[in-house]
Design a protein around this nucleic acid. Structure first.
Lengths: 209, 209
DNA sequence: TATATTTTGAGAATAATTTAACGAAATTCA
DNA sequence: TGAATTTCGTTAAATTATTCTCAAAATATA
């Protein structure tokens, strides 16, 4: 039964399903039951069926799920086929690494531009992405559709930059600054990569084994 | 009342408390109640008190919590004062970025060495960290204490490398490969940074606003 | 074709997490 | 000093998430 409000726990499992199904596809596996999928992923078949049932009925009794079909469904749910437009703010080591290595296009994103204050990178081209001066940011956003901004900038300027971008109409932030950014408008979404938090949970677990 | 088994949900909130308390310290704030802390963080006072009570009694009725003292307690719980030893496997763009920018020492980690297969980086020094050939890895680990390994290597070699490291006695992995790594021994801990999963959840939320 | 088996999706039961309530202890203020 | 206020830590209640169960439908098999 399709649900109206999907819980965060379910949403955060979807990319994992998507990854697993992509792998099954590449292994040439055509069909799979919730039971086998659960075994491969280390989760229960119940959870898998419950999760999928939030979005529709993708399986068939006695058969299971068609891997390719299910993968396509989940890709669609995740918006991989939406071709979202993205720009990066801050092209330091991390921004550079993402531009070089991260498979944005496989994830459904076009990286249209990057911005930085450093003359050393302004007007360069990193892996096909043009780097502009920060002063050109407002103009660029006013002229182009931008769905998501990647924040790979220092903490000191993060909240101010986010505020400015929200004013310009940006509604999605991929935030690498390891600080919480806030916005009164609930339609503005922040997704955080907190490196330090992640390492600290590992620190906890090895210290309290 | 001190708890024996702490839930993952609680553990994952600890670094956030630690960050917030660090900021309060730097703002010169001496004491804080669970209510105000909750307001600043956007969570309930109940949750804060419940979370802390898993580890002991750090507050005082009618007063609240001493910020610096509480911060020290949480640092200790997280193992920030343990001086864990870490090595990095794979010094590509991302590994390089982490070595250059990530505050390992503030998080309680010493980065003792990095390893790569590329002659271009072998025997160089990145931000004070020596880079060795992958062939020297086994020898290094046998001679030194290594608590955590950072995996910034391609997916294709990730599971094999992890297996080899587990055999050498490594018990903690900070995994950037965006794939699940597994190990039969439950004492071996994997902490994953899944960039793609993170961006896909953002994709979902902007597509289903 | 008839029967046994597989497997889903839904609903019920169980478990875990979060929030509320409250007594007790400390602080603040008159 | 004494009353009012603040705030903790704990227990209880409410909410949310996960797992179990099972009828129904499809497949596989004899």
């Amino acid at each position: 039964m399709k649900k109206e409000n999907i819980s965060d726990a379910v949403i955060r499992r979807l990319p994992r399903y998507y990854r697993q199904l992509t792998e099954l596809c590449s292994r040439g596996i055509v069909r799979i039951s919730s039971h086998s999928l659960g075994q491969e992923m280390g989760i229960t078949a119940s959870q898998i069926r419950q999760d999928f049932s939030c979005f529709g009925e993708f399986g068939q009794q006695g058969y299971g799920y068609n891997v390719e079909e299910l993968r396509t469904e989940i890709a669609h749910i995740l918006g991989v086929d939406n071709n979202h437009h993205l720009v990066m703010i801050g092209v330091g080591n991390l921004g550079h690494a993402l531009l070089q290595n991260f498979p944005f296009s496989q994830t459904g994103f076009s990286v249209d531009a990057a911005f930085d204050v450093s003359p050393a990178v302004i007007n360069t081209d990193i892996n096909g992405v043009p780097v502009y001066a920060m002063s050109d940011l407002d103009g660029f956003i006013k002229k182009h559709t931008v769905d998501v901004v990647v924040l790979t900038i220092p903490q000191s300027v993060a909240q101010d930059t986010a505020n400015r971008l929200v004013e310009l109409g940006i509604k999605g932030f991929w935030n690498f600054t390891n600080m919480e950014l806030s916005c009164a408008n609930p339609a503005v979404k922040f997704e955080n990569i907190h490196f330090a938090d992640s390492l600290l949970t590992l620190s906890y677990r090895i210290a309290n084994r």
